[in-house]
Structure formats: structure tokens, C-alpha cells
Nucleic acid binder design. Sequence first.
DNA 1: TCAAGTACCGAAAAATTATTCGGTATTATA
DNA 2: TATAATACCGAATAATTTTTCGGTACTTGA
Lengths: 120, 120
Amino acid sequence: MAYEKKIPVDLDCPLRLTMSLIGSKWAACILDELRSAESMRPSEIHRRLPEAAPRVLDIQLKQLVDDGLVTKTIYLELPPRSEYVITPLGLSLLPIIDSMLEWGREHFDIFLTKYGKSQP
Amino acid sequence: MAYEKKIPVDLDCPLRLTMSLIGSKWAACILDELRSAESMRPSEIHRRLPEAAPRVLDIQLKQLVDDGLVTKTIYLELPPRSEYVITPLGLSLLPIIDSMLEWGREHFDIFLTKYGKSQP
DNA sequence: TCAAGTACCGAAAAATTATTCGGTATTATA
DNA sequence: TATAATACCGAATAATTTTTCGGTACTTGA
């Protein structure tokens, strides 16, 4: 019960409703990755997003499934296998994610000079 | 120092860069409100977003100014007066905010049945 | 004089999110 | 017989965000 959304989605404002679905640190990134294949196994998602703690990806994936943006299929095999696929509802968010990607790429330099660290 | 961004913006990924600017609870809402007038006084912003704690709006506004999405003009008058105006950079985010608004309105009903409380 | 409005700010608490760590269980490979 | 890979999960901790509370300071209107 520790990792369930306290306020599942914000129904008071359409903007915050959308935000509460894709506004977490990795949700939009996961959706962005999922589109690059028919389906994706969790280990692959972990590989593609190495900066995220594996645990948080598990939690976010569960959230995405709960919200209906992604489906999960568990194959009763050994070794275990499961696959995630983006749903039509999740697909309908991709234009938003695309525009955020584009905006970020376009304005990257502003924030690099503004906030970029001098010595890495 | 308590209310400064620890990780100011996320420069590793364009998606999370954009997110770190408009992904907080009220930032996108403030930008959305600011466009409905030439300029806006803080008291008006507070009136328009009564669900937000006044303090958090102050903090978010400061953040938006720091990030260059909004300008603040202080008039040395009594009683004090200041005004916020959205910058061209902030304006360039409005298409994203619009698409999130539209998505939220369009899919509101799904989440109302899914997560809406039975008795208010 | 008292109350309300204007625009802030700091400190602390509460709430939420993210991360780390360790653990389960099975198979395949060295 | 180890070791790694697969896919998870719980608990505790850390980090961050949001909220609450109280305070400053001045003016206007009742």
C-alpha cells in the first residue's frame, strides 16, 4: 500500500489530470521507449533507462498499467517473461510527449548555459 | 536556500528538461492563467488558483521567473504592486499546455469512472 | 482604532516520490 | 557448484515538493 497513488489522478483540472499521468520522473520516458518496439520486456526497459533505479521503473510501470496507458502480459515460462505494450490511450499521449521532446531539444542550449555545470 | 531547485533542470534528456520546467503541481496552471491577461498581479493569480496554497504559488512564480518563462515587475508604490508577464519562452510552451488541456478534457470521463469518488 | 487588502518571506511540518538494499525463485551458463 | 540473468516485492531511507503557520510592513476604508 506504500506505493499506491494517494491522489490517483487529479480530476479537478484537465491539465493536472494529464500531468498526474505523465508528470512523474520516468512515466513519459517509459512511454517514449515503449513505442520503439512492438512490445518490451522489463529488462530491456531497464537497460534503456539506466539512470532510473530499477525499482522505480517497476513501480511506474505498474502505475502505467493501472492507468490504462500500458498493458502487461505475463508468460508463465521459466525463466519468467513478461511484456509491456503501449495501449491506444497511451499512444494518444505520444503527440504531447513528442512536443515536449522537441521543445526540450530546441531550448536545450538556453538551460545549458543557465544551469549547466562548469566542471563535470 | 530551502526552496531552490536542487537539480535545477534535467539536462540529460530533453523530455525531462521540459518536465522539470512545467512538471510541478502548479507551474503549467500558472502559465495557463497568465495568458488570459496582458499582465497579472499576484493577488489575481491567487484568486484564480484558490486550490493552491498561496505560499506555493509564490515559490512557483519565483521559479518561473528564474527559468525565464515569466517576468516580474515590481512597482515601488504603496500599497505594493507587482506584475507578472509571460515571456516569449513561456509562450512557446503554451502549445504543449494546450495539448495537455485538450487531452485531459477528452479523456476526463475514463478517469472519472476509474478513480472518481462515489460520494462527494 | 480595527479590519482587510497588498506583497512578500522563513521555518517547520506534512505529503509525496524516488532510491537503496535485501530478499524470493528458477534457469542457463561457466 | 558458483554466477549471472530473468522478474519481481517489501521495508527503510533519502530527497523533494507542497502545505501550514506565523510574521513584516504599509494603506485604505468602516
